[in-house]
Design a binder for these strands. Structure first.
Lengths: 124, 124
DNA sequence: CCGCATCCGTCACGATACTG
DNA sequence: CAGTATCGTGACGGATGCGG
């Protein structure tokens, strides 16, 4: 291992770095940035929402991906799922405490992207 | 469109929201969160690095994906590529001003993920 | 040797149809 | 309404090749 590797591997503010393949951060990062994870988390940032609402609001997401994304986010403890035993069925999704905590770091990033996007794509 | 849709579509701090499918933010978001985008940006956060360094440091990335990721990030104006006409060839990558600006929003997020990852995966 | 393009197998994604 | 099952397609990753 060269000096530049150790330099890159460890970084101030991180425990072990995120670049090594084996660290758990990779898994969580893959879940959160899983093409729809960020958008679903953002959609839930203002409170509880039903399946159909999320389906319509996160435009372009397929039912399969919405189900899969919600399930992994729930397994990671970021999203809370509450099923009401009614007819017709009603299922509500909301952020957990940890999910809200994550969102507070996610929102400024999304605001930056939203603010810079058009300017970035203008030049190709 | 119901009231919840408009409520979700617009959000304080965002121009048009990111959830609509047609907005440019989606494209940029897909580039940045493109499975390797975040890791490459993070790897460049401490300065200029060569191709081979990035290849070794971002563990698990294939040469094809590294090339593709670097090219899209360069097209978006986040990464600067400098090729030195030497034998053996030497190509150096670094963050642009905008890339550094983005990274300042990315780093706290990654630090949060790195800090919470192990605890999140502990409970399945 | 290093940076990168190309070919090809595999797998995740998306559209549709169907169930409780 | 809230999902699950099935299937075709496109993106991804590995191996290979080539120019410098």
């Amino acid at each position: 291992m060269t000096s530049v590797d150790t330099q890159l591997g460890r970084r101030p503010g991180f425990t072990d770095g995120i670049l090594p393949a084996a660290c758990p951060s990779r898994t969580v990062l893959d879940h959160v940035t899983s093409k729809w994870g960020v958008l679903v988390l953002l959609a839930l940032s203002d409170g509880t929402h039903r399946w159909g609402e999320l389906r319509r609001v996160v435009q372009g997401i397929s039912e399969k991906m919405l189900a899969q994304t919600l399930r992994t986010l729930e397994e990671d403890g970021l999203v809370v799922r509450v099923a009401h035993p009614e007819i017709p069925p009603r299922v509500e999704y909301s952020l957990s405490d940890r999910g809200r905590d994550l969102n507070e770091h996610l929102m400024p990033l999304m605001a930056w992207i939203d603010h810079n996007a058009s300017e970035m794509l203008g030049r190709a």
